[in-house]
Amino acid sequence: MAFQQKNRYDLKDLRRIIEILRAPGGCPWDRAQDHHSIRNDFIEETYEAVEAIDREDSTLLREELGDVLFQVLFHCQLEQEAGRFSFDDIVDGVAKKMIVRHPHVFGTVKVSSMSQLLQNWDAIKEKTKKQTSQTEVLRSVSPALPSLMRAAKIQKKAQKAGYPPEQPPQKAVSRQEAGELLLQAVRTVHAAGLEPEQVLQEATESYIDSFSQWEAAQTLQKPTSEDRK
C-alpha cells in the first residue's frame, strides 16, 4: 500500500499505518489479532505509562503514552472494520461526556467548593449511566481492575453512601505498618493454598452483596408520602 514516509507524523498518519498493517498484504501478525488476543498488551502498556509517571520520566512517558494510543487506535480499527464504530465516534462520545459532566464550565451551574463539584459529578454520572441505587454504583466499578484497587474504590464509595465499616479500625497505623499488614495477609492466604487476587475479588463481591442488603433495609426504613399524611 502507498505510504509516504515523513520526518514527522501526525494522528492521521498513525491511523493510516494501522489500516495498512491490518489490510490484505499488511503484517500477518497484526491481521491475526482481535480484542481478546491483545487485551493483556493494553494492560501492560497502560502500566508502563503509569510507571513512567511514578518515575517522573517525561521522555519515557512520551513513549509509553504513544504505545497506549496505538492500542486505542488498534482496538478502534477492529471495530471500524466490523462496522460498529469509528475513531470519530469515540472522540464525539468522550467530548459530549466531558461537556455534560462539567456544567460548571460549559453550562450555567455554579459551584462554591470542590466537594460540591464532586457531588455534582457523581450525580451526573449516575444519571447518565441510569444508576438508580448505590449498589449499582458499586457494581459498576470494573471487575477487571486489580483486586486491591477495586476493593479500596468500592469501600470508599460504600462508606461515602453511609455504609458502616463491619470492623472499625482499632488504631491508626503508619504507612510501614499498613504495608506489613497487607504483606501478612498475602502470606496467610498463600499459606492456605489460595490465590490472594481471586480471594479478594470474591470477598469484594460478598461486600457488595452485604451493602446491597443494607441499602435495601435503609430504603424500607424511609417514610413514604403515605406515612407523612
Rank of each mutant, 00 (worst) to 15 (best):
C76A: 10
C76H: 05
Q77H: 08
Q77E: 11
E79A: 12
E79K: 13
Q80W: 05
Q80P: 00
Q80F: 07
E81W: 06
G83F: 02
G83E: 05
G83I: 02
F85I: 07
F85Q: 06
F85P: 03
S86E: 06
S86L: 01
D88V: 08
D88H: 08
D89W: 00
I90R: 04
I90M: 03
I90H: 02
I90E: 01
V91L: 07
V91T: 00
V91C: 00
V91A: 05
V91K: 01
V91S: 03
D92G: 01
D92N: 09
G93P: 02
G93E: 04
G93D: 05
V94L: 03
V94W: 02
A95M: 06
A95W: 06
A95G: 07
A95Y: 06
K96R: 13
K96A: 10
K97E: 03
K97V: 03
K97C: 03
M98V: 08
I99C: 02
I99H: 00
V100F: 10
R101D: 01
R101I: 02
H102Q: 00
H102M: 03
H102A: 04
P103F: 03
P103V: 01
P103Q: 03
P103I: 01
H104W: 10
V105S: 01
V105L: 04
V105H: 01
V105C: 04
F106W: 02
F106D: 05
G107I: 00
T108N: 13
T108P: 07
V109R: 09
K110S: 11
K110A: 11
K110T: 12
V111L: 02
S112L: 10
S112Y: 11
S113E: 00
S113V: 04
S113C: 05
M114S: 13
M114Q: 13
M114K: 13
S115L: 13
S115Q: 13
Q116R: 09
L117P: 01
Q119M: 12
N120L: 09
W121M: 12
W121T: 09
D122A: 14
D122G: 11
A123N: 10
A123F: 08
I124E: 05
K125G: 13
K125D: 14
K125R: 15
E126I: 14
K127I: 15
K127P: 09
K127D: 15
T128G: 06
T128K: 10
T128Y: 12
T128P: 07
K129W: 14
Q131N: 08
T132P: 11
T132H: 14
T132K: 15
T132Q: 14
S133N: 08
S133F: 08
